[in-house]
């Protein structure tokens, strides 16, 4: 179980690092085994930053990320390698993820060099073949090729297979299908569904609400680094409460309805302040709208009174 507790990331920008850019503010959620959590946000929402913090590619400024009882930020040396045994990631651009001057088997041999140097050549080959079989690829057809000789869909599946070589418990999938064609997207997405049923916990980072709704159990909606709404996917999509969520859902082009057919009714007063009138605007509190569905203060970013 991966837990994020009030995680923040602040960048110092500008001349002499004078200005602060808050990329992620006070984000908390969990990823349990066997569940897919969608992290939905537009560009600049901080969703990729969260993914990178979980993968220890960038540092955490505030809050904690814990895998079980281990604090991710304090790991050093061999403990880091053990962490990557359980937490892996796949990125957005398959052609950028594979070093273009090596054949694709290089991404597997990297893992072998660190984790499996005691295996014999035959044992290793069997292991790789098994992982490739789980993503419906034939070793003979793909391993000896260069990245530009394969399609985006094949490369993404290879990268998922690589993530499965270890005892992966949590997979961070950062926009993994946004660069794929519509017909191959579904195959990779269904692959994630299969992995979920095998007990993997998946963080599905995306800007596409339809995909998030399709594959996930829990949804977290991110806006400018803050969580505005989160909960069970069916409840968040069925009963969107925060004005931002409602705007997002209304903007999604759907195949059975034209824009403008639906009307955005007033969501009513801010739920946070309805629950605790003495709280001030701009808090990070999430208030439960219904079991398994929480929403943040409506005026958080604008700093307006409710």
């Amino acid at each position: 179980m991966l837990t994020l507790d009030r995680v923040s990331k602040v960048y110092k920008v500008g001349a002499f690092g004078g200005t602060e850019l808050r990329a992620v503010r006070d984000v908390s959620f969990t990823i349990a085994p066997g569940e897919v959590v969608s992290l939905i946000g537009e560009s600049g929402s901080g969703k990729s930053t969260i993914g990178k913090m979980i993968l220890r590619l960038i540092g955490i400024n505030g809050g904690t990320i814990t895998l079980g009882d281990t604090n991710v930020a304090t790991l050093k040396g061999a403990a880091v390698r053990d962490y990557y045994r359980e937490v892996q990631g796949v990125f957005q651009d398959p052609f950028s993820s594979c070093n273009p001057i090596f054949k694709v088997e290089h991404i597997f041999s990297l893992v072998r060099g660190v984790y499996f140097h005691s295996l014999s050549a035959t044992e290793w080959r069997t292991k790789v073949a098994e992982a490739l079989g789980a993503v419906a690829l034939e070793p003979g057809q793909v391993l000896h090729k260069y990245p530009h000789q394969l399609s985006g869909g094949q490369l993404q599946r290879l990268l998922v297979a690589r993530a499965l070589l270890l005892d992966t418990k949590i997979l961070v999938a950062d926009e993994i299908i946004s660069m794929l064609d519509a017909s191959t997207r579904i195959d990779v997405l269904n692959l994630l569904g299969e992995l979920k049923s095998r007990g993997l916990g998946i963080l599905f980072i995306t800007h596409d609400l339809s995909l998030g709704n399709y594959i996930s159990e829990k949804t977290v909606i991110l806006r400018r680094g803050r969580v505005v709404e989160m909960g069970e996917t069916s409840k968040v999509f069925g009963n969107p409460t925060h004005p931002y969520t409602r705007m997002l859902i209304a903007s999604v082009p759907q195949l059975n309805r034209r824009w403008g057919d639906e009307s955005i009714t007033d969501p009513g007063p801010c739920r946070v302040h309805a629950a605790s009138p003495s709280g001030s605007a701009g808090t990070a509190l999430l208030v439960e709208v219904e079991p398994g569905h929480s929403v943040a203060c409506f005026r958080v970013d604008e700093g307006l009174p409710c």
């Binding site: 519509a182 579904i186 997405l189 339809s210 709704n213 594959i215 069916s234 859902i249 759907q254």
Partner: peptide
């Protein structure tokens, strides 16, 4: 048929 309209779930 491969497009997930909002509402279709895995």
């Amino acid at each position: 048929a491969s497009l997930p309209e909002v509402g279709v779930r895995y």
